[in-house]
């Protein structure tokens, strides 16, 4: 369980996150939606212990978050994950040395699934292949928490589809808590259980995806549009 209690992040006078309180329950898949600059990435980095809150606290399994959380949490970042002059297999080897929970067999399965050539240099990979490699590295870890920050950014629909299939096939649903930030709502909808709308550093709406679908007959995108409109009116 991940608990955010009155979390604020301030850069000078600008507030990136404002008094956020929310609990991410164990074993669920969450989607954090919202426009650019709404604070999605900051929230992810805070849970990963890479950014410290100005106010409030973040608890993972009851313990305050620190850099040490990396041992039990896998984080897919938008940048800086890959070394350009490494080969795919060198990246896998490096991750295997850094995280004791890294599963070599799962990495091999994912390598085949993602159709990546182990001898290819990262700098020679297309954006889509790099995105798949990042997902491979993160999904190969046996952690209770998976944070995926914009896993679809800059990727074409075919690659996005492949990544969603990868998530469906390789996430341990019910055990792993997965938090995904994205703009690509349609692709990710089949995987999501809960959705949060973040705007100007605040959670402005949240929903259970199945309830929205069954009770209101809305897709997540439609729910999102409705809530964004409400925000505009308010």
């Amino acid at each position: 369980m991940i608990m955010l209690e009155g979390v604020t992040k301030q850069y000078g006078t600008r507030k990136s996150l404002q008094d956020i309180s929310y609990t991410f329950e164990k074993g669920k898949v969450y989607g954090i939606l919202g426009p650019n600059g709404s604070g999605k990435s900051t929230m992810m980095k805070m849970i990963a212990g890479l950014v410290y809150p100005t106010g409030g606290k973040i608890l993972v399994e009851g313990k305050p978050v620190s850099r040490k959380i990396a041992a039990s949490l896998a984080f897919l970042s938008t940048e800086g994950m890959l070394y350009q002059n490494f080969k795919v297999e060198q990246m896998i080897h490096f991750f295997a040395t850094q995280y004791p929970d890294f599963q070599r067999e799962k990495a091999e399965e994912l390598l085949a699934f993602m159709e990546l050539d182990r001898r290819q240099k990262v700098s020679r990979l297309s954006k889509g292949q790099q995105g798949r490699l990042k997902l491979l590295l993160v999904l190969s870890r046996n952690t209770d928490i998976l944070l995926l920050d914009e896993p679809f950014i800059g990727l074409d629909p075919m690659v996005r589809d492949m990544i969603v299939k990868g998530l469906v096939s390789f996430i341990d649903f019910g055990r792993q808590t997965v938090i995904i930030t994205t703009h690509e709502i349609n692709e990710i909808e089949p995987v999501l259980e809960e959705a949060l709308l973040l705007d100007n550093g605040r959670i402005t709406a949240f929903c259970n995806v199945e309830e929205v679908r069954e009770k209101d007959g809305l897709s997540v995108l439609e729910w999102l549009k409705t809530n964004v409109k409400k925000e505009a009116v308010l």
């Binding site: 990963a48 890479l50 041992a71 984080f75 970042s77 940048e79 004791p100």
Partner: peptide, 15 residues
């Protein structure tokens, strides 16, 4: 310099 972009190296088990 190789680590500056994104500072992802800080997300690891080494201090």
């Amino acid at each position: 310099k190789a680590e500056e972009k994104g500072q992802y190296w800080l997300h690891g088990t080494a201090d």
